[in-house]
Computed example of a mutant assay.
Amino acid sequence: LADVTGGLGPIRHVDVAWVRARGVPDAGGWFTRRDQSGGGALVDLGWHLLDTVLPLLGPARVTHAIGSVSDDFVNDSAAHAAWRGGADTAGHVPGDVEDTARGFLLTDTGASVALHACWASHESLDRTTVTVHGAAGSATLRCTFGFSP
């Protein structure tokens, strides 16, 4: 993607998403407890997305950031990660972190980034996408990250 991005001209915007259909990790364990993890899907998945996207923008500094989070799935047993196996729910502590995070970043060069990271969604399959929009064209990488089935 980095090689292709070089031919797109100045980068104007990047859309990046890691959306799991079902994948709340270890509900009730340290992953879903703010006092132990510091956060949910953004802390777990979001930094991977930023680590992928920011080098594509070149030497740019993020000057503005805004975001929103939600927790519609974190305590829903149907949204637990199938690849984690059956969890022992004895003594289950409800999760208190976000399962979905959305953000919008603006750089000092005028480029923007829309970020979407979530552990569970209404999607039928996991998806990871990175779309880079440049002055001369765009390119999209569609794949899966992590333990996606």
Score class of each variant (00 low, 15 high):
residue 5 T to Y: 07
residue 5 T to P: 08
residue 6 G to L: 09
residue 6 G to F: 05
residue 7 G to M: 05
residue 9 G to V: 09
residue 12 R to T: 15
residue 14 V to F: 00
residue 14 V to C: 07
residue 15 D to G: 13
residue 16 V to N: 02
residue 18 W to S: 14
residue 18 W to E: 14
residue 18 W to Q: 14
residue 19 V to P: 04
residue 20 R to T: 01
residue 20 R to M: 14
residue 21 A to N: 10
residue 22 R to T: 02
residue 22 R to Y: 06
residue 23 G to A: 10
residue 23 G to E: 13
residue 24 V to P: 08
residue 24 V to D: 08
residue 25 P to A: 00
residue 25 P to W: 03
residue 27 A to M: 15
residue 28 G to F: 05
residue 30 W to F: 13
residue 30 W to E: 12
residue 30 W to T: 11
residue 31 F to K: 14
residue 31 F to Y: 13
residue 32 T to P: 07
residue 32 T to R: 03
residue 33 R to N: 12
residue 38 G to A: 06
residue 38 G to L: 04
residue 38 G to I: 08
residue 39 G to A: 03
residue 40 G to M: 04
residue 40 G to D: 03
residue 41 A to Y: 02
residue 41 A to N: 03
residue 43 V to N: 02
residue 43 V to P: 01
residue 44 D to W: 09
residue 45 L to M: 13
residue 46 G to D: 02
residue 47 W to C: 12
residue 49 L to F: 05
residue 49 L to Y: 02
residue 50 L to Y: 10
residue 54 L to W: 09
residue 54 L to A: 04
residue 54 L to K: 08
residue 56 L to C: 04
residue 58 G to A: 04
residue 59 P to S: 03
residue 60 A to P: 08
residue 61 R to E: 11
residue 63 T to Y: 03
residue 64 H to R: 13
residue 64 H to N: 10
residue 64 H to F: 15
residue 66 I to M: 14
residue 67 G to C: 07
residue 68 S to P: 00
residue 68 S to Q: 15
residue 70 S to E: 11
residue 72 D to R: 06
residue 73 F to W: 07
residue 73 F to K: 00
residue 74 V to N: 04
residue 76 D to P: 05
residue 76 D to W: 03
residue 78 A to K: 11
residue 78 A to G: 13
residue 79 A to W: 08
residue 80 H to Y: 15
residue 83 W to R: 04
residue 84 R to A: 15
residue 84 R to G: 06
residue 85 G to K: 03
residue 86 G to N: 06
residue 86 G to I: 08
residue 87 A to L: 15
residue 88 D to F: 14
residue 92 H to C: 12
residue 93 V to C: 01
residue 94 P to F: 10
residue 94 P to W: 11
residue 97 V to G: 03
residue 98 E to F: 08
residue 100 T to Q: 06
residue 101 A to D: 05
residue 102 R to G: 11
residue 103 G to C: 14
residue 104 F to A: 14
residue 105 L to P: 10
residue 106 L to I: 10
residue 106 L to Q: 12
residue 108 D to S: 11
residue 108 D to W: 02
residue 110 G to H: 02
residue 110 G to L: 03
residue 112 S to E: 02
residue 112 S to T: 15
residue 117 A to I: 06
residue 118 C to V: 12
residue 118 C to Y: 01
residue 119 W to L: 07
residue 119 W to M: 09
residue 122 H to F: 12
residue 122 H to Y: 12
residue 122 H to P: 06
residue 123 E to Y: 07
residue 124 S to N: 11
residue 128 T to I: 02
residue 128 T to D: 05
residue 130 V to P: 02
residue 131 T to Y: 01
residue 132 V to Q: 04
residue 134 G to T: 00
residue 134 G to Y: 01
residue 135 A to N: 12
residue 136 A to L: 12
residue 137 G to S: 07
residue 137 G to K: 00
residue 138 S to W: 00
residue 138 S to D: 12
residue 139 A to F: 07
residue 139 A to V: 10
residue 139 A to S: 12
residue 140 T to D: 10
residue 141 L to S: 07
residue 141 L to G: 05
residue 142 R to P: 00
residue 142 R to M: 06
residue 144 T to F: 02
residue 145 F to T: 06
residue 145 F to C: 08
residue 145 F to D: 06
residue 148 S to W: 08
residue 148 S to V: 14
residue 149 P to A: 14
